[in-house]
Write a protein that binds this DNA or RNA. Structure first.
Lengths: 233, 233
DNA sequence: CAGTGGTCTAGACCACGAT
DNA sequence: TCGTGGTCTAGACCACTGT
């Protein structure tokens, strides 16, 4: 385990367990260096991680403080690993509609940077939050990278399988958002009326080497759609 | 100017000017160290900045590569300084509806962490993109921090004035997104029908010392609403 | 002015990728 | 095995905050 990762985890746990609030002060750099027996740069790197993640903010000449947004029940748009943490936090479950190998749509092929004749795993699921319909999810996985999938795997966390099972390293994602009106089929799945609002979230996930491996399109039930985003400016 | 900031700017300009594409390789660390006459850590810090910003991705054992998302015409949800760059890129203009000093709504008071009897500057604007209505914007500024505003200032960039004119340092923002249906008044402003979809974006902006100074609520025309987000996982 | 975080260095050593 | 990026150190010096 990397030292700075370890320190970041420890501090985050500490904040969580002691229910520290926005503005609460953490120990100064000097103390953290001694406590974890590392150099200043390593502590700094750990704190930069936490700052990027929206957990703390640092004020030169003053100290390190806890950052905590006020609202509960919002799904993070930037949380790592495709909703992994959110899954646990919000009790999100899913029902599989389709799983097969097929040729990509033109849109999927463009986003995955493959040809129209290459194979993809196509997954369609309905996701539920606290028993309510949250969203429709359609995913296209480049089969030459994600070589195998089955119903059991996609019932659990696909991303977990990709990293643990296949040993692939997920690097970054481009995400696009649109708001539009539901068509009849989507309304049916989500238990809403045709023409009701929807939030469409398209993501292209890449490996650390830059190869796109997953193009996903999520259509959210607007009633359940509350998202948040913590930015450092 | 900080060295790592300078290097980051130079590299970003280079990528822009030479129209480098996704996957194009940049010089190796060693060369960048020599070129800019700085230590390895400084180059690394510059590259980490660019990576966070979604401009490059680094692959251990291989090199540093340009990252570039495929779609044009999307507004960045994470671009710095309240849309400053987007303003230029998309020719966003605004029309002022209201500017006055008043008491905050309960909601604004909670988000700004002030009392119901404290003063705020209230600003209501309509924003246009390429001449089309983009969104309705309502902002509440804590008057004890943002001590003065006038029509001229809010016609230009408010955030620019806050940093340059008032010498304040903007630190971070919490942003919340909802999708809902337009009410009659909003529909009127946006030139849409009541019941049409809307995207509501609420942001709380904080100074570097953690004090919230601006609570803004933006209601977007769903037709014009295309956002993107570059995440590092 | 003392306290505290931020920048920068030079260099050792490690881990991953390509060949 | 070599090229390349990642982690970590010890320490000098700088810049902002608060008393």
């Amino acid at each position: 385990m990397l030292k700075y990762q370890h320190i970041a985890d420890e501090l985050e746990n500490y904040i969580e367990e002691h229910k520290l609030q926005q503005g609460d002060k953490l120990p100064i750099l000097q103390d953290l260096m001694i406590q974890f027996d590392v150099s200043k740069s390593t502590v700094t790197k750990a704190l930069d991680l936490l700052e990027k993640k929206g957990v703390v903010f640092q004020v030169r000449g003053s100290g390190i403080f806890v950052r905590r947004h006020k609202r509960q029940g919002y799904i993070s748009l930037t949380s790592n690993q495709g909703f992994k943490k959110n899954l646990e936090e919000f009790h999100i479950t899913s029902e599989i509609i389709t799983l097969d190998i097929r040729k990509p749509t033109k849109e999927a092929a463009v986003n995955l940077n493959i040809g129209l004749d290459d194979d993809v795993y196509y997954v369609k699921r309905i996701r539920y939050i606290h028993g309510q319909t949250l969203c429709i999810e359609e995913s296209y996985f480049n089969k030459s990278i994600v070589t195998y999938l089955n119903k059991e795997i996609i019932t659990e966390s696909i991303f977990n399988y990709i990293t643990e099972g296949l040993g692939l390293n997920i690097g970054f994602a481009d995400t696009y958002l649109h708001v539009d009106k539901l068509n009849a089929e989507e309304a049916e799945y989500l238990g809403l009326q045709k023409g009701d609002p929807k939030l469409e979230v398209e993501s292209v996930f890449h490996l650390t080497n830059g190869q796109p491996f997953d193009f996903s399109k999520l259509t959210y039930n607007y009633v359940q759609s509350q998202f948040f985003l913590q930015a450092v400016l």
